[in-house]
């Protein structure tokens, strides 16, 4: 059995939004007890990843480190805008989907890790999709 749900999300500049709550809710709605959960975004300048929960400073480090590795340069070949160019690169480097194991109605990473939705190109309206498969 497969259950998918789409979520709209409005993001801020360099925002890291915790979306674990939505994922758990989808798992409950799906009624599936065991299987896998995949969270994916199709927005090319956003990213989804799992990281330590409950420490905003760690998130700040992640944002700053990402900017150090991929600076928003003005001499990218693509001509949209520096933030947009860096956003594409960060998206492909840091991944835009996460899959998690669902065991007995509970995600393995619950309580220890959270899933974050990272926005790389300024405040905008974005979206992501949660799919629960199993029985």
């Amino acid at each position: 059995m497969v259950y998918t749900k789409e979520y709209k999300i409005s993001t801020g500049r360099d925002s890291m939004q915790n979306i674990s709550a939505e994922i758990c809710k989808t798992v409950e709605d799906s009624g599936i007890r065991n299987g896998i959960v995949v969270v994916e975004t199709v927005d090319s300048t956003a990213g989804i990843f799992k990281s330590v929960s409950g420490s905003p400073e760690a998130l700040d480090d992640i944002v700053r480190e990402m900017r150090r590795i991929v600076p928003a340069r003005i001499n990218f070949y693509q001509q949209e805008s520096p933030e947009n160019g860096a956003g594409h690169i960060k998206n492909c480097l840091f991944g835009s989907s996460v899959s998690m194991i669902l065991k007995d109605g509970k995600l393995l990473c619950e309580g220890r890790e959270d899933v974050y939705f990272a926005e790389y190109d300024g405040p905008r309206e974005s979206s992501f999709c949660v799919c629960v498969a199993g029985e």
Binding site: S10, S81, P82, N84, G122, R124, E125
Partner: peptide
């Protein structure tokens, strides 16, 4: 404005 990030992509659209 879009390139220099004085307006956000949201406002630009």
């Amino acid at each position: 404005g879009r390139v220099r990030n004085t307006i956000s992509p949201l406002v630009y659209d």
